[in-house]
Nucleic acid binder design. Sequence first.
RNA 1: CAGGGGGUAGUUCAGGUGGAAGAACGCCGGAAUCGGGAUCCGGAGGUCGCGGGUUCAAAUCCCGCCCCCCUGACCA
Length: 581
Amino acid sequence: MIQLRYSNLFAPTLKEAPSDAEIKSHEYLVRGAFIRKVTAGVYNYLPLGKRVLDKIWRIVKEEMDNIGAQEMLMPIIQPAELWKITGRWDDYGPTMMKLHDRHEREFTLGPTHEEVVTFLMKSELSSYKQLPVTVYQIANKYRDELRPRYGLLRAREFIMKDAYSFHSSWKSLDEVYQDMRKAYEKIMERTYLKYLVIEAASGAIGGNQSHEFVSLAPIGESNVLYCEKCGYQASDERTLYKGKYEKIGMDEEEKELERVETPNVKTVEQVANFLGVDKKRIVKSLLYVGRKGMVMALIRGDLELNEEKLKEVLNDQSLRMATPEEVLGKFEVPIGFIGPVGVKDVYIIADHSVKYIKNAVVGGMKEDTHYVNVNLNRDFKVDEWAEMRMVKEGDPCPVCGAPLKATKGIELGHIFKLGTKYSEAMKAYYMDEKGELKPFIMGCYGWGVSRTLSAIVEQYHDDKGIIWPISVAPYTFVVTIVNMNKKEQVEAGEKIYKALLSSGEEVLLDDRMTTPGIKFNDADLIGFPIRITVGKALKEGKVEVKMRHSNERIKVDYEEDAKLIETLKNMKESYKPEPKV
RNA sequence: CAGGGGGUAGUUCAGGUGGAAGAACGCCGGAAUCGGGAUCCGGAGGUCGCGGGUUCAAAUCCCGCCCCCCUGACCA
């Protein structure tokens, strides 16, 4: 039996919140001695944090093993060549931590492993008889986040479980996809997280499908739209607009095109105020840079453009907004005054909302001017129409039309049917029954393991600290000896501690030579589910047992081990903290 | 990357018009205590982010760099 007493535990708790903690999970994980920052977005896991991490790790591992996924380990350092084959050296580019060796060969610290695993399978699998195969790993990942924050939530180094499956049929992929879905639901249940499974696909295109597993939290960075009427749940980025298009001035006569002075009036808001028109009458012109050059995207002034949709429509993940300098270089017009009128050599793509605006307002293509009374086809042309708006709360549900509701969450899991994107790019083929070479059909499945710690703390805490669900608690019980100078308290504490240990429970004995207040506050902060207080009640032959979540306290006889253990196990059974959401 | 704030003890922070480095908490030793970070006495602990400059003298002024934090994410 391994014994570790609190007096020997490396758990430096903090009374004050660290100055950079903005959210409770970050504050409590640091104060409770679970983690310590090394540098922005990079953390040490202290012994308590490692214990919690191990529990989550084990849950994830067990659920993967249960569905027949095989654990392996892939390298953190990956050569640039692999990423150049799939084009992601540029697509993923800025988010990757890049480095080079002494010979100036380029590498990345892997943000994910599709390239590596596909390359592996390309060399090692050659026949349909060897398929399907699902492999996974739980390992460090690296992303050079624009701005790391929120402790483990948006970190630059983090621990992720990533699984990859290889198939010779879509049906087989679908089976593993469904298995993964169930496994993820089990992980959510075993960590007691309140969650939603949301559609992350923009439509049923060629069997491509994707779901996110989102742990609910107001501070979450995923925006979820859901429909109370039909049960539709999806990320806002992927929700299609299927509502009506408002007609703006469509009953008016087409007026004569006119260029007006709008000194220093740039944003839609400013233009609307300055000219005294509705924002809906303005056509917003956004310039993007992609693989095939520049693209101008148009959308009604009051709407937001959904970049994900644009990238998908144009099939170009490298798409990004042009910089002000690039805009100036292209049109010799500063941002704020560009528009589609007179544009010739730039591809123009427009949201359907633009179709229904007559006598619109657009940038004047000359500093400090705008065009008014602009009309489609007469004054500008559109090369392609698409649905590209960011759907918001209140917009109609794409399935049933009822108004959508919005909520926020933390993305923990993401499962994706990749299809043959990577296998084709990397020429990873197997031979089928007919002797033909076919690209592997693939799926990939991620789970943010380190991030799960934060997600749990976000849902399970109060103003004193963390309230761990037992399945992930660093220890289930803490035995608190109130007065270390009283021999009988020390003896009773030891006795209970050893009895719990030998009955297979995870327990920590707080034998520190310090005041009770410190012990109680640390216990609450760290969040042990059940505290056994060995103190003044000992005179009556009793110890006090306190539940962290409910504050319920009972006194129990401690003399008889068997009975005490039974009582404690019963209390453990009844320990059910409520998620805060 | 842009804009703003900051870097002084383990932590949270004062100090800043140039003139002997501070508080609280924590830590160490001791006393008295022992059911909610309690009290008293004594003590240790700093390259004031790094480098350069100005000066008799720099934490303080100037220049360069690094790091951290906040806001934003080019929505024209």
